[in-house]
Design a protein around this nucleic acid. Sequence first.
DNA 1: CAACATATTCTTACAGTGTAAGGTGTCAAC
DNA 2: GTTGACACCTTACACTGTAAGAATATGTTG
Lengths: 219, 219
Amino acid sequence: MDQRTKINSRKREPLSPGRIVQAAFEVIGAEGLAEFSTRKLAQRLGCEAMSVYHHFPSKAHLMDALVDSAVASLRPIPPDFDFIAGQRFAAFEYRAMGLRFPAFFPFLSVHRMNTPKALAWLNAMIGAYRKAGFSDRDAAHYFRQFGYYIIGAVLDETAGYARGPSTAAPVPFEVMKRDFPNVLSAGPHFAKGEWRRIFELGLEMELEGLTSALAAARS
Amino acid sequence: MDQRTKINSRKREPLSPGRIVQAAFEVIGAEGLAEFSTRKLAQRLGCEAMSVYHHFPSKAHLMDALVDSAVASLRPIPPDFDFIAGQRFAAFEYRAMGLRFPAFFPFLSVHRMNTPKALAWLNAMIGAYRKAGFSDRDAAHYFRQFGYYIIGAVLDETAGYARGPSTAAPVPFEVMKRDFPNVLSAGPHFAKGEWRRIFELGLEMELEGLTSALAAARS
DNA sequence: CAACATATTCTTACAGTGTAAGGTGTCAAC
DNA sequence: GTTGACACCTTACACTGTAAGAATATGTTG
């Protein structure tokens, strides 16, 4: 009908899954997960909301593509690393991925990884445990347990980082001082500059535990 | 206008924050977090959607009340427990809380705990670390790191438990067998019956690490 | 008792959401 | 040309949270 719409769609690069995924990350990064809608996505793409549906059957499928894309950005463990060094590498790599998409990570953390690229990554990770000497069962269990720590850590860093202050009226300083002095004195040590140390503290604890478990499994 | 509405609102118990919170948990438990809306909540309460707004200024405030209520259900660490036993108790207690509200936990996991009851719980937890002999800084860091593991674990149990299959078309068995054999053979060991063992595996690893850290801090 | 005040609850309306159904313009193959 | 496939757009619907204000219920004062 209106000729400008045609011109618009001719002028710009045509839509594609890749371009849509990238634009989605941009919107989520700029406006936050809650503000991410098909219409705002379309606005950034220079098209109409429904045009996205020609490339993704639903918003949920698009979100899955975002998960896949984020997971695909995880570099595999270098082959010459031993098991512990490899797990350390994977942990930092996963954390870096989360911090690359801080506003998106809370979504990722809660979603099953059953897209092809996510499965490939999972497969490699579990394979590392098997290869190190864990039984099938122990490989599954220790890997999952390790994931608990990593995901919990990255979630905390991103959920706190990406979101503004809570909706509830914050407790005033005087009340904090009187009723929750431990929280107050812990506050500075929760600052962003400390996050990496906190992450490493627990990570090294995990790695020592894995070392012991591995020694026990091999004997 | 319509007289039945009056009769209805006379007949039932009057609205109150407590009744609304309870109904909210019921709706979330029965229909899931995504299906939880003010109108469905009102339906369960036998009132109109906007009536809720007299008791909570916004849905976000109501959600905060849910967080507060869930956290308030955490029993404090018994005073005669030593530090490690206390942390073990708190970990299981937290996990039990999450499993009590499985559909709600993914929301809780991502939200700051700055309501009064949540702060009281935080304050007690951090206090336990201080009392055990950690410095202010180490208390903050080791507590947070411990929380990473616990929250990651409970999130995984509830997010997998409370949600149905992913939206993406699942990868067919033949493909799994060929391309992701490690994931396939790990599958049975990720079954629900194994969750408690997995949780304990990582928990005991954490507790051993805390024991060592505490010994180092005291020396 | 009536009259007023306050606390609850309901009605209506609006801007926003995901997306079903079907239309329109462009281009390649015949 | 005509046809058909493809990419994109228009419209419409059922849903969301909630602002604004009307209506009712309850309590208080005369």
